[in-house]
Amino acid sequence: MKEKHGGGDGMRHLLKYVKNERGSQLIEFVAVFPLIIFAFLFVWQMALVAYTVVVAEGAARDGARVAAVAGIEDPAVDTAVHNSARGLDVLDIPKNVTASSYGEEVSVNVDVALKTINVPFVGELDYEITGSATMPYESEEDD
């Protein structure tokens, strides 16, 4: 009769357990899933940044057009900026008139709050984006 050694059976059982790959796909998925979510949130945040920049530049351009015709003190400038930047929080609208080699120019800057994604454990991110535009001042003397 052959004698069984307890060590041989235990080693065989251990090797069988180590080579067993059941559940490995689930573990890999659980390890990679947060990275996929983070990448998606990063891409979404970059889209929000791009949207904010484009809208701020457009609002500044619309404000500069109105200011070039009506003057920088006209309340229609602020109205044009707010209407153009619909959906964004307009923080400030600094305006000025400068002289250049082409004559007087009207500059309008639009400061807007950047929309951000609320990421747990990171909190609110407060950034502002500035859009600016300059147009030639159309004085009434030119008519």
Rank of each mutant, 00 (worst) to 15 (best):
V112K: 00
A31D: 13
R65C: 00
V90L: 00
V69T: 08
L88M: 13
A56S: 03
A47Y: 05
R22S: 09
A39P: 02
E124Q: 15
L125V: 12
V18Q: 06
Y102T: 07
V77G: 10
E105I: 03
K16T: 14
K16F: 14
I72H: 12
T130F: 00
T52F: 03
G71Y: 01
F40R: 02
E140T: 11
N118A: 10
S24G: 06
A50V: 10
L125W: 10
N83W: 05
L26Q: 06
I36F: 15
E104Y: 13
I117E: 06
A70V: 06
H13E: 06
V54Q: 10
Y51Q: 12
I37T: 04
V32N: 07
Y17L: 14
R61W: 00
D92L: 02
D111Q: 10
T130P: 01
P75F: 13
S24K: 02
H82Y: 13
A67G: 08
Y127A: 15
D111H: 11
N118M: 00
L26R: 06
L14Q: 12
V110T: 04
V110E: 05
I72Y: 05
N109D: 15
D89G: 04
D74H: 03
V97P: 07
S132G: 08
S84G: 09
L15Y: 05
S84K: 02
W44S: 13
A80V: 02
A59K: 01
E140H: 13
D62G: 07
V30A: 08
P120M: 13
S132H: 04
A133T: 01
P34H: 15
G103I: 15
A50I: 09
L114Q: 04
L91A: 13
D111M: 06
E138M: 10
R86C: 02
A47D: 14
D74N: 10
G131W: 00
I37Q: 01
A50T: 15
S100W: 07
S139A: 10
K95C: 00
V18N: 08
V110Q: 04
S139V: 11
I36E: 00
R22Q: 11
E128Y: 07
G123A: 12
Y102G: 03
P34A: 14
E105D: 08
I117C: 12
Y51M: 06
R65Y: 04
A113W: 01
V122Q: 12
E128W: 13
S132V: 11
Y51R: 11
Y127P: 07
R22I: 12
M46V: 09
H13N: 14
W44C: 03
E57Y: 01
F121C: 03
A39H: 08
R65P: 05
K16Y: 15
S24T: 06
A70R: 14
A80P: 01
A39N: 05
A64R: 10
V53H: 06
V97I: 09
N118W: 04
Q25C: 07
V122A: 10
E140P: 02
A50S: 04
D92A: 12
Y17I: 03
V54Y: 11
F40G: 05
A70T: 14
E57C: 05
Y127S: 15
W44I: 02
V43F: 09
I93V: 09
Q45E: 14
V53F: 07
P120R: 08
F29P: 05
G131I: 01
S101F: 09
S101D: 08
A76S: 11
Y137E: 01
P34R: 13
